[in-house]
């Protein structure tokens, strides 16, 4: 079998899964969102991801751990980005 990088893939997969699910949920949103609100959401998401911290058993930078004290919950950030992206994809879709 192919050797997949990195060895501990379980730290990366949640981020990707959260992104895909975020895009799926984001396409369910309607209406416009101003750039100010987008910036606010991204900033609050970053702040919240520091508060939530990386899940336990995550050790590498890819998993969101910078040092022992500072770690980011990457799935949260990627889910936020995914929702905003999915919302922008939907633009022009309108209602059924």
């Amino acid at each position: 079998m192919i050797v997949i990088f990195p060895e501990v893939l379980g730290e990366v997969t949640p981020t990707l899964v959260a992104f895909v699910l975020g895009v799926i949920l984001g396409t369910q949103m309607e209406g416009k969102i101003s750039s100010r609100t987008t910036a606010l959401v991204l900033f609050m998401g970053l702040l919240a991801s520091i508060l939530f911290e990386a899940p336990i058993h995550f050790w590498s930078v890819l998993g969101g751990v910078l040092t022992e004290q500072i770690s980011f919950a990457f799935p949260f950030i990627s889910a936020t980005i995914g929702i905003l992206l999915g919302k922008s994809i939907k633009k022009g879709g309108g209602s059924e």
């Binding site: 959260a18 975020g22 949920l25 919240a48 939530f52 799935p75 949260f76 889910a79 929702i83």
Partner: peptide
Amino acid sequence: LLLAYGLLVVT
């Protein structure tokens, strides 16, 4: 943010 939090919880 609630949506993102839900996705964090499930992943």
